[in-house]
Design a protein around this nucleic acid. Structure first.
Lengths: 236, 236
DNA sequence: TCAATAACTTTTCTCGAGATTTTTGTCTAT
DNA sequence: ATAGACAAAAATCTCGAGAAAAGTTATTGA
């Protein structure tokens, strides 16, 4: 029996990139999430290898890594494309996220120790500070808010012992990030996100799993509604 | 808005392999699932490229594809390894499978049409025939049973509209296949699997979601118990 | 004018060799 | 005898060029 208690994640994400392929992978991933390469675009190796300053085989590996995240689709013998976006897809992503993330939060609340509580409070504090800065309208802090929002959601489910749920949740979070950028750019702070986060933290620390998962569900689903109210052709 | 109703799967699996890399990928996947390459083994490119008769870069791509399935883990600058196996990991896989597969089955039962019912009945019939042959103890039919068992489980959730749930379920099924082989080789037919399948089909066709998901949960979890009762060192 | 075929261009896929990094083995000094 | 450091070996990672396939344009015949 292997020791799996402190096993590493299924795909390392927090580590520094140690290979050129991984560096190109991260740049490409950011460019796809930010919309530099638009959904459905063809990703030609010959063109991109110059842009990202790596060899053809290396860029190919980077693209393969993006297939794992389902940000790129590969059709045999016909190259790579940026994964398409659609409202149906986002609805699917969101609902699946709710399914996984509520289950993970429930387990976290049941199993989390003092250190977990502390990490949740800390992540919430960091996120709150970022929201303060965001109110000023600084552009650089938007990137920071994204990272801390992600860290907050990860902290919430940090005590969930299931590596698989966390792995899948990680993939879905990347996916939804693409869509969330659409809605947040248009409506800077449309809803009281802070209050929602606060309510989740309160319920979680009170070990009220039912309440915490209920609020989290609504919180996630609200982003779906926000995207639904965008102009119909904006998603393409 | 893109049409996503009949969109292709996230990773094509049923299609024929159109590239050498994909051919090598399938061979490697089978060898890993069947235990030719054991958990934790190092997968040296220089050694394997001769064995699978492809170039180094091509085999590298095949390994990258296996990382997507989490059957292989890649550590930057330190090569590839067969993903380790452990009882904790299998418990995690199984519980996550239950979470996803019951949700998918519930939706299938709610949304499935006549064609879905027919595909379930057909897959169940194929599986039953394979079980008849398996009773004779033929070796070739074991492979067949695996394929049809998989097809049966896929048919059950075939009417679930969530591509993401089906995608994740697909990955987990491959994973659990590695473990299931351990238990089924030792105890040819330890439990009345046929009756369990029959009960699921009956409840599904009766549109009794609660009953169907309950039986499916127990059905999946029973495999976990079977593996738990193996000799402790057998899993390594 | 339109459809089908053929030649051409672009792109993907594949391979082997060279440069870095990790691992292994040996030797020396405390 | 053990620990540390240096050197040799193995493996990984990277690159550019050649082969196969897909996509595009031009030509020919009805």
């Amino acid at each position: 029996m292997n020791d799996l208690a402190n096993a590493p994640d299924l795909v390392s994400d927090s580590d520094e990139p140690k290979t050129l392929a991984e560096t190109a992978y991260r740049q490409l991933r950011r460019d796809i999430i930010e919309g530099v390469h638009r959904p459905g675009d063809k990703l030609r190796v010959e063109h991109l290898k110059d842009q990202y300053e790596v060899g053809a085989g290396t860029l190919r590996e980077a693209l393969q890594l993006l297939v794992t995240d389902a940000l790129v689709v590969a059709q045999g013998q016909r190259g790579f494309r940026v994964a398409p976006m659609s409202l149906d897809d986002f609805a699917d992503i969101t609902r699946t996220r709710v399914l996984l993330e509520t289950s993970a939060l429930q387990q976290s609340i049941e199993l989390g120790d003092d250190a977990w509580e502390a990490s949740v409070v800390a992540a919430f504090h960091m996120l709150s500070r970022a929201e303060d800065k965001l109110a000023d309208g600084s552009k650089a802090s938007r990137e920071e808010w994204e990272m801390r929002n992600r860290a907050f959601h990860e902290a919430l489910i940090g005590a969930c012992p299931s590596r698989w749920i966390r792995h899948f949740q990680n993939i879905l979070y990347h996916q939804s990030e693409r869509y969330r950028r659409l809605s947040l750019f248009r409506q800077p702070i449309p809803r009281d996100v802070h209050a929602e986060h606060q309510a989740i933290v309160d319920a979680a620390l009170a070990r009220n799993g039912a309440e915490a998962t209920r609020i989290l569900s609504e919180h996630i689903l609200r982003t779906l509604e926000a995207v639904r109210q965008l102009p119909a052709d904006f998603i393409n």
